[in-house]
Design a protein around this nucleic acid. Structure first.
Length: 310
DNA sequence: GAATTATGCCCAT
DNA sequence: TGGGCCTAATTCC
């Protein structure tokens, strides 16, 4: 469910609280017992996001690769300082979308603590089906519901990353990475709306960013990649780099740039203010007034404005 | 309480 | 193109 910005925030949280520590790795649910045993007791040396995938590198060179899929989420305990005395902070990032927004953004919730994001005991009892628990003596990170969770050797890790297109938040050469995306986007006859969701073309874009980037570019999602002018493809990349960086900092996706300061504040708790077209079926387009439409494209809902996007 | 929904992706056909 | 999988909150009766 999370798009790239969420996974980058998770990597950041893990880096802040668990990298450099020797971890107890377990699988409370049991489904990942063998994998957990492989990395249990090792020092975590890095946590990196590439697109929607998370790579946690341990001192042996083994890497925990995690993909949250549609349902996965990480719960964090004890790490979200500053804390109110008498408890340990708790927060979560990932799916499902959360009702109570506290201090970290849309897809991060106060949970599963009852009061003020605190749990009474540490380490806390696992909540729900916890596939993996990463624990230092002061921080616990619990992974629930991932679609992928496996331990890879360095070669396997390199192969997994090789399958992904460029991610502007995990490259040190934005221009070269942009060249790769532009080349892959403009060399196929597949609809650009599908290509933006293809993680081998560009990594990290999901259904919300797909719809919003296309609207911002005023581009018809059905345009074949080969018909997208190079400068338009480059503009999509440039906008993606900006939107992703904003999402990572903000903690949620806010693509509208027409909001007042007050509305921008409201958007923290009101997701209906955040998007131009995503999830706005039947409502008037904020630019043209034409009703926003939704259709199925390759099995996913695609939201767009038929008047603006030509 | 059951059905629906979701920011994803894999595989078989 | 369709089904399957993973989980939990929301929506519908």
């Amino acid at each position: 469910m999370p798009e790239g910005h969420t996974v980058h925030r998770i990597a950041r949280q893990l880096t802040q609280d668990l990298v450099g520590r020797r971890l107890a790795v377990s699988s409370p649910q049991g489904r990942f017992a063998a994998g957990a045993a492989r990395i249990d007791g090792q020092v975590l040396v890095a946590a990196d996001a590439v697109g929607k995938q998370l790579f946690c590198t341990f001192e042996s060179g083994d890497v925990l690769r995690v993909h949250l899929g549609l349902y996965g989420a990480w719960d964090f305990y004890g790490s979200l300082t500053p804390l109110v005395p008498g408890g340990f902070a708790a927060g979560s990032m990932g799916a499902p979308r959360l009702r109570r927004i506290v201090r970290m953004g849309e897809d991060e919730r106060e949970s599963p603590a009852e009061e003020g994001g605190l749990v009474a005991t540490f380490p806390p009892e696992p909540v729900g089906q916890v596939r993996v628990r990463l624990a230092s003596d002061s921080t616990v990170a619990d992974l629930r519901g991932p679609s992928a969770c496996e331990v890879l050797d360095p070669a396997g890790t390199a192969a997994a990353i090789e399958r992904l297109g460029p991610d502007p938040a995990s490259t040190d050469d934005l221009a070269a990475a942009g060249d790769v995306m532009v080349d892959r986007l403009t060399s196929r006859n597949v609809a650009v709306g599908q290509l933006l969701m293809d993680q081998s073309v560009v990594a990290g874009i999901g259904n919300i960013y797909r719809a919003e980037l296309l609207f911002r570019a005023r581009l018809d999602p059905h345009t074949p990649g080969r018909r997208v002018p190079t400068d338009v493809a480059r503009a999509l990349w440039d906008d993606w780099t900006v939107q992703l960086a904003d999402g990572i900092e903000r903690g949620f996706i806010l693509t509208r740039d027409d909001l007042s300061d007050a509305q921008r504040d409201d958007a923290v708790t009101d997701s209906s203010l955040r998007h131009w077209v995503y999830h706005r079926t039947g409502f008037p387009c904020l630019v043209s007034g034409t009703p926003v439409v939704v259709e199925e494209m390759a099995g996913r809902k695609l939201y767009w404005c038929p008047a603006c996007q030509v």
